Simulated scan of single mutants.
Amino acid sequence: MKKSKKNVLGKLLTWVLILLLGMAAGYLGASLAAEIGMASDALPFLILGLLAGFFIQIILHEGGHLVFGLATGYGFVSFRVGSLMLIRRDGRFQWCRYRLSGTGGQCLLAPPPWREEGFPVFAYNLGGPLINFVSVLLCGALVVLFRRSSPALACIWIGIGLAGLYLGLVNGIPLKISGMPNDGYNALHLGKDPVSRRAFWAQLAINAAQMEGRRLRDIPEEWFILPGDAGPDDPMKGAVWVYRYSRLVDQGRYEEASALREQLLQENGKLAAVHQYALQADQGLFDLMDGRISQGLDILGSSEIKAFCRQMKGNPGIVLVQYAAARAAGKTQEADRLRARLEKDLDAWPYPGDADATRELLARVEDRLASAAEKE
């Protein structure tokens, strides 16, 4: 109970800090606008600057990760802004669509080969916030340059600079947001904790292998095992354990996967929220497949899981869960719609090996649900 209260308090303080940073940025913007004589007319230009600024600053932030990562031995895998993602596969660059709820962009690189003595993590993690802060200085210089000749343009640069300041601080101050460590937290702690550093390496390496088309079952098993077989006692390590669970599913080792899923779901507050909900959705799916229809529908019909599925609506694995629930509930039209959408999403999914695994699981789901319907 004490640990649960501590987790809730920590999350509350994190969001209070983020809110205060936003309020401080707004106050700073209004003050600067007043300084250049546009206190009453500045709002539209500040808003325009902020809207453009967040888009620009996300690109700069992810570009910072890219530049500092490549400079320290990482390899390019993907670069995403919004839902538009540039990937590299078989030595060629390709454009595709991919959206991850809660993120405006993401740069994922392949890590250098693992070494027991460690690998570079500091520059890669802090490269994003650093570029944001550099852009703030540049925006400040442009505000000074245009404050007399074009106050409206100066206000736009204020907005762009404030967006950079906000993103730099939110990502640079060591925090855990929704359970996940941010760039500053990683830069501060990964160098001190060899187990977390290995977990960080494993996530990047597994993602890079999946982008090349490899399935989880074909990736070396040792990538899914932390030093000393460390447990999922924080979101960073927990992510590797969730990968281990998904690998068991891909291997068809369903009983072992079920046991591990149950173990992970008992790690209350230690997994990232996205992983916690994904495992619960899987629990509901496998309940349906094993003939526990009412139990599975109860899980998948809960408000938390339904909200999670809406947020992750572009993920084929989640669409599969929704399709299975609709079919098990006898909602034929909805099931047909979701089935067609699933095929479309699988064709566009940037991870071809993962798409193949989902298609195999889909066939198993349909077979098991058909068998359950015949018994009724």
Rank of each mutant, 00 (worst) to 15 (best):
R198I: 04
G10S: 10
P316G: 05
D282P: 07
I299Q: 11
A326G: 04
G161L: 07
G164H: 08
W114N: 02
I18G: 07
V240L: 00
L342N: 04
L190M: 02
K313V: 06
V321G: 03
E343D: 15
L190S: 06
E376W: 13
P174Y: 09
R341A: 05
F68E: 00
S178F: 15
A281Q: 02
E222D: 15
E374R: 11
K344C: 06
D250N: 02
A373C: 03
V136T: 08
L21A: 02
V144N: 09
W349P: 08
L137H: 05
L17Y: 05
G291D: 03
N315P: 03
T14N: 14
D183A: 12
I131V: 15
V143S: 10
Q251K: 15
Q94G: 02
E255C: 06
Y323P: 00
A42P: 03
L167D: 02
A348G: 06
M1S: 15
E374Q: 12
K176N: 14
L138V: 13
S40V: 10
I318Y: 02
G252M: 09
G252E: 12
K11D: 14
L9F: 09
K11V: 08
N186H: 07
R89F: 04
V240T: 01
L265S: 06
F133C: 08
R327F: 09
G238I: 11
W15S: 06
G301N: 15
I160N: 09
D298I: 10
P151A: 01
Q210P: 00
F79A: 13
